[in-house]
Design a protein around this nucleic acid. Structure first.
Lengths: 271, 271
DNA sequence: TCATCTCCATTGTCGGACAAGCGGATGATG
DNA sequence: CATCATCCGCTTGTCCGACAATGGAGATGA
């Protein structure tokens, strides 16, 4: 398995090992990067609040004393990073990095690194287990209502694989929202984008899978109604396990990397 | 708790609800974005392999039929996204998104969204538990050796909070590498950047914490040597729990958001 | 063959220019 | 006076052209 974090061209030079190699390589950044970094620091440090307007390009030209083209290139860096955004008038505002954007990039990185379904599945097992336990503690009546509604819709759509797959994603998303943990929420986004979409395929090739899916959801919801954390956890583990069984049942190996063309399709649908 | 994924200006217009609202808003992207998207598709789809050279700016100008400035702005978007990179000669090559770069962005997003230590801690508990279980199955003798070495260094540095904090991060990083799961590896990066660095503070204010930390590491390593998954898991949970206790012991609330200035410092050290 | 040098290609940066579009000011109207 | 339509100016997106610095490749020499 290849590592993901090797990088021969490390700017920082790593930890200084002893007395030799005193000076690390100097980072001679181009001006557009310096512009981007300067603005980024203002935002991250909180000196510019999210929603607050960044100056116009002309302002930045004056402040930084560089050409407008240079400013614009710097802005492009930040724009992709999600730290600034444009409203309808295309003016620039500071922003908090968007969530789904990050999730898309994370998922894309996994695809490019040829992460296997096994890795995805193991992470799913861990995260969803934690989510359901937290949800058992914290879910509100409103959250339970959402789950009930989702469950009813799922039972109605049990013969429609594509609809059911969407409802499956929705189910777990509701659950995670109820768990009230944004770190787990982001950590489980790759599941939404890469893992759960495969359920549609499973439902198509194996009608049994659809029923087991909805049954598991039902059992989890019932357990949450009773605030029965242990039972909810048990069913969640079964539920995630079922995916693996289903995957193997249709003759695919869980150890193969996520299919690139498939994932590209999925990721582009919500670029 | 605020949601992280609301966005009134959604480009896609969401799911079409019934027959009304047939046409979603048209995405009239500027040319530089079209350029970036075009190149991105080439890379993500695999038509351009990582490491392969992208044409020069002049080439792209010819291919896309736009001005060089426009091409350059498009390139800046991709550059920040990590899909292309420049070698020493500043030439452009396709690349796989770097891992630590992504991790930094994720962590920064958490800070800006004012995620609480509780959320981080809950995620840590889930992820580290999964990691140690997988590691118990998969760790090699070499991995065990690395852990042994880390443990020895930790015991030697038990009175040096800053060193010990670094060794603590290293311990969990080794463990995750041994678990052989890159999804979890990325998911736990925010711990490295935001959660574990707080241990230095704990060690400083409470010498007991350092000892408990190293003891827990020792117990985990011993369990892994015996391939005793249950015991390793038990000690890991204690270990993560200790952090919470220590945090409360020094009078801080686990429900407060991650301190912005502190986090900025940590994140900038490996920008 | 190997080291050195020169020249060229390429990037980074600059200056200027213009069309399109939005915001706000201005004016008209009830 | 309030509401609405119109217009002007600012801002962005795009284009053009230019030049210094620098790395690489090929030419040149030992």
């Amino acid at each position: 398995m290849q590592s993901m974090d090797n990088d021969p061209e490390d700017q920082d030079g790593g930890a200084d090992t002893g007395a030799g190699n005193r000076f690390g390589p100097i980072a001679a950044s181009p001006a557009y990067k310096l512009v981007a970094d300067a603005i980024e620091r203002q935002i991250v440090s909180g000196r510019v609040r999210p929603g607050e307007a960044i100056g116009t390009e002309a302002d930045l030209v004056k402040q930084f004393g560089v050409n407008r083209s240079t400013v614009r290139e710097g802005i492009r860096l930040l724009e992709q990073g999600g730290l600034i955004r444009r409203d309808s008038s295309r003016r620039l505002y500071a922003s908090v990095p968007r969530y789904d954007r990050l999730a898309t990039r994370i998922s894309r990185a996994f695809v490019l690194h040829e992460v296997t379904f096994r890795e995805l599945w193991e992470a799913t097992m861990a995260i969803e287990s934690a989510v359901v336990e937290l949800a058992a503690d914290r879910i509100s009546d409103e959250g339970l209502g959402e789950l009930d509604l989702n469950l009813r819709k799922s039972r109605a759509a049990i013969d429609k694989p594509s609809e059911l797959a969407i409802l499956d994603i929705e189910f777990h998303t509701i659950l995670c929202k109820a768990a009230g943990n944004r770190v787990l929420q982001l950590a489980r986004e790759p599941e939404n984008k890469l893992f759960f979409p495969t359920t549609e395929m499973l439902f198509q090739k194996n009608p049994q899978a659809a029923r087991r899916n909805v049954d598991a959801h039902g059992a989890i919801v019932a357990a949450l109604h009773r605030r029965d954390k242990a039972d909810a956890l048990l069913w969640m583990k079964r539920h995630v396990n079922d995916w693996k069984k289903g995957f193997e049942l249709i003759g695919k190996s869980i150890d193969e990397p996520i299919d690139r063309v498939y994932a590209q399709h999925v990721l582009e649908s919500n670029l």
